[in-house]
Design a protein around this nucleic acid. Structure first.
Length: 441
RNA sequence: GGCUGAGUGGCAGAGUGGUUAUGCUGCGGUCUGCAAAACCGUUUACGCCGGUUCAAUUCCGACCUCAGCCUCCA
């Protein structure tokens, strides 16, 4: 198999050569659990789920780690606002996130570590960075010394000095160099905190990923993924931390980043009031529809999310589920036209369009599963969903009445019944002298 | 200002140095009591300007426009 993936480190599409072909190691930055996840958070989850499925298809073993960030100042704020313990907030939104992921047909990662379960390891990593003279202590903070790390900026193509000229944030007075970032910071009594060699406190933002990747995957990993906005500073800082702690410059071989999601052409933001949560969308659309919509644009391109994209995705899924009723051959393979585009830097749009060309239902099912689609039977898909208020029995009775009307050429009455059912989201089809119905999707 | 991308037909979205993407929508047709579904047909595509070439949407160069990042946002 010849798998190619775009590497942010080189800004090029590269052939994927694993560190160890027997076991692929992949880490993806997971959610900070302080609120409902929005549709933008769903994109990396779905994209890297496809990557996981593709890798699993090629290699005998893939270890996929996606963390839960449950230590963060945003969580503290949310807890304060609601007057609830922090663990209440983090548990609640972790559960909701899991539910969302399940609905989007995202497979569970092999490990889903939480920061609060990894404080010991984080502390020992910070200690190593200090021992290696890549960090310093000042005013109860442990700070990473950016000037001590020569390769700083290699992922985001930034020059240490030029970066500062554009800086628009006030520099904290405990920093030696403005680009230095926090590894450990002090906590007040009502903030979450742990005892450490540097006093009671909590980890900074970037260290948890470095630490958990090391704990669950080892010092060197094949793939590290996340949203494009994480390239700087988060991933740049991860590199600095891990390489400093390990005395080894080979932390991650392939950095993979997905593009942004816009809502109807506009950036999602609180000020525009156009943030849409996964949960809200799931009330209106099936999870598979949302999943297909997210995969209908190449993962590195910005995606323009909205009603029309979802409608289009709905139509495509209807078509695919319909094709699931085509004749079955003994062909039990995954279509080359579906897998090959995926092997070429996850070209999901091309892969999906080729899905529509598959004639054999068995091949279609196998191929679609690679994308995490067609997880149900056609009957389940087209069966009445809770959008309709009608009972199956009533529908059957009306159909019978319509058939009688048609036989006696009372087409006015027949059409009335059709309209009535249509208003209740039921579509009638007269096929081979029989009348079948299905829910409007 | 620096860095990274992107500009394709009504819309979404692939791809390619010369021959159909695909889907949705619109229009026309076959079918139907009417529909639906299915099938068939169909409408001006490749930001602008140069260059290379027998040939460029595709390669090269400049330009224009847009987006993201430049310290806690996926």
């Amino acid at each position: 198999m010849n798998f190619k993936i775009y590497n942010t480190l080189s800004n090029k599409k590269e052939p994927f050569v694993p560190l160890n072909p027997k076991c692929i190691k992949m880490y993806v930055c997971g959610p900070t659990v302080y609120n409902y996840a929005h549709i933008g958070n769903a994109r990396p989850a779905v994209v890297f789920d496809v990557l996981y499925r593709v890798l699993t298809n090629i290699y005998p073993e893939v270890i996929y780690v996606r963390n839960i960030t449950d230590v963060d100042d945003k969580i503290n704020e949310a807890a304060k606002k609601l007057n609830e313990p922090i663990s209440f907030i983090t548990n609640k939104y972790t559960d909701i996130y899991h539910q969302d992921m399940k609905n989007l047909c995202v497979l569970s990662p092999d490990h889903e570590p939480r920061v609060t379960d990894n404080i010991k390891q984080i502390i020992s990593m910070i200690q190593k960075i200090l021992d290696n003279k890549n960090a310093y202590i000042n005013k109860d903070h442990v700070l990473f010394d950016v000037t001590s790390f020569k390769e700083y900026g290699k992922l985001s193509n930034r020059d240490k000095d030029e970066m500062l000229s554009g800086a628009r944030v006030e520099v904290a007075d405990y920093k030696k160099y403005p680009g230095d970032f926090v590894l450990w910071k002090p906590s007040s009594e009502n903030e979450p905190g742990w005892d450490s060699p540097w006093g009671y406190g909590r980890p900074g933002w970037h260290i948890e990923c470095s630490s958990m990747a090391e704990t669950y995957l080892g010092e060197e990993i094949d793939i590290h993924g996340g949203g494009q906005d994480l390239i700087f500073p988060h991933h740049e800082n991860e590199i600095a931390q891990s390489c400093s702690a390990h005395n080894n410059n080979n932390y991650v071989k392939y950095w993979v980043h997905n593009g942004y999601l816009n809502m109807e052409g506009e950036k999602m933001s609180k000020s525009l009031g156009n943030i849409v949560t996964i949960k809200e969308l799931l009330d209106k659309y099936d999870g598979e529809v949302i999943r297909l919509a997210l995969l209908s644009t190449h993962y590195r391109k910005p995606i323009n999310f909205g009603e029309s994209l979802l409608e289009q995705s709905q139509n495509i899924l209807n078509k695919l589920y319909k094709n699931l009723n085509n004749e079955k051959h003994n062909d039990d393979l995954v279509s080359d036209d579906v897998i090959n585009p995926l092997l070429d830097d996850l070209n999901t749009p091309l892969s999906i369009s080729n899905l529509l060309k598959i004639k054999c239902s068995k091949t279609l099912l196998n191929s679609a599963n690679l994308l995490g689609l067609l997880n149900r039977t056609a009957d389940e898909w087209f069966s009445l969903n809770n959008k309709s208020t009608m009972l199956e029995n009533d529908i059957e009775l009306l159909i019978q009445e319509r058939d009688n009307a048609r036989k006696s050429k009372d087409f006015i009455r027949a059409d009335e019944i059709r309209d009535q059912l249509d208003k209740n989201n039921v579509i009638l089809e007269d096929v081979d002298g029989k009348t079948i119905w299905r829910a409007k999707k």
